[in-house]
Amino acid sequence: MSNESLVSSGEANEHGYRPFTLGGFHFDRDEHFVHITWPTGRHEAAIEPFLKALMRDVAWNFFYGTVNFDAVIGTLNHYGNVDLFAGRFNQAYREAELDHTENFPHDEIKATFEAMLGDWVNESFDPFAAPQETGSAYGLKSGANTAAVTRTRIAANRMVGLPDDEPLRSDESGYPVNRMFADVDQTEPHVEVVPGFESEVSAFNFFAYLSRSDVTWNPSVVSVCRDSLFCPTTEEFILPIIHGNDRVEWFVQLSDEIVWEVEDRDTGKPRAKVIMKAGDCAAMPADIRHQGFSPKRSMLLVWENNSSELPGQIARGEAPVVPVRF
C-alpha cells in the first residue's frame, strides 16, 4: 500500500492484526470488533460494517461532506485535509462535551486507512460485495484481499466507451452480469458512424454496463457535462456509511427500489423516509444525512455537482441547502 512512511502502526496482536494510531486516535481489531480509543472515550464496532465503511471512505477519497461509519465515528472532508471525529454529530456526545475531533493532512489519514484495510481485510472478505457474494470478515488474521481493497474508482473523462476513455464491461474483461440482473437486456445500441467522426458518435448500453458492476454502493463516473457528473452505482443490502451532505446531491432511481432513512445531519434526529422506485427523482438537501436500504440489487443514478467553486461556497455558508424552492 502507498505512503507506508506516513502510517503509525505496531506489531500484530494475538489475533494477528496490527494496531494503528492517528494522532490521539488508536485502532485495534480482534476476531469480532474494532476497538477505537481517543483521549476522552472509547468505541467498539463490529468489524464487518466497520471495514465496509472504511472501504467506502478510502475509495471515495473521503467523499463530499461527512462519512459517518456509525452514530459515533466518522470523517469530515475539507478537501485537502480531513477531520476524524468521535461523537461530533451525536447530540448526546455533544451535550456531554465528550465529542472529539482531530484534523489530519489528507495523505496521512488516507495512507493509514489504506494500511488498515490492507492488514485487517482477510483473504475471503470483499468489503464492496453484497452479503451473499463474499466470505466472512470475522475471525483470526487469514491472508489478505489486496485486489479487492485497492480497486481503483472508475471515472470517465467524457463518457464510458469512447476511444481513450473508460472501457465497457464484458465477460472477457472480468465483469459477468450480476445474478440479480440476469434479465437485463445486453443488446448494444445500433451506431452508424460516418468515417472521421469515430471519437464523437458513440453510444453504449448504460443499463447493461451497470448490470455488470462487481461492487455495491460505489458510484463511478460514467458521463461528464462540465462539472455535472453521472455517478451510477448498483446497490444491494445497506449503504455501509451514513452520508452527511455538505451540498445538494440528487438520486435518480433507474431500477427496482431503495428506501432512504434521512436524519438531521448534525443531531441525527429522524426527518423523513424517502421511498424511491424506478423513474423517481429526489434531491438530498445539504443539511441531512442519509442511509439507503436496497432489498434487491438496484440501479441508482447518483448525480453530483463537482464544481470547484462549491467547497468555498460551503465554507462561507453560501451553498444552497435545497436545490429549488417552489
Partner: peptide, 23 residues
C-alpha cells in the same frame, strides 16, 4: 410505473423535490 414518495417524520416534503420522470 410505480411512484414512491417522501414519508415525513419531521420535514417538508418539498425539500426533496420528489417527482417521477415517467409521470
Amino acid at each position: 410505473f410505480e411512484k414512491g414518495g417522501v414519508e415525513v417524520i419531521n420535514d417538508d416534503p418539498k425539500n426533496y423535490v420528489f417527482s417521477n420522470m415517467f409521470e
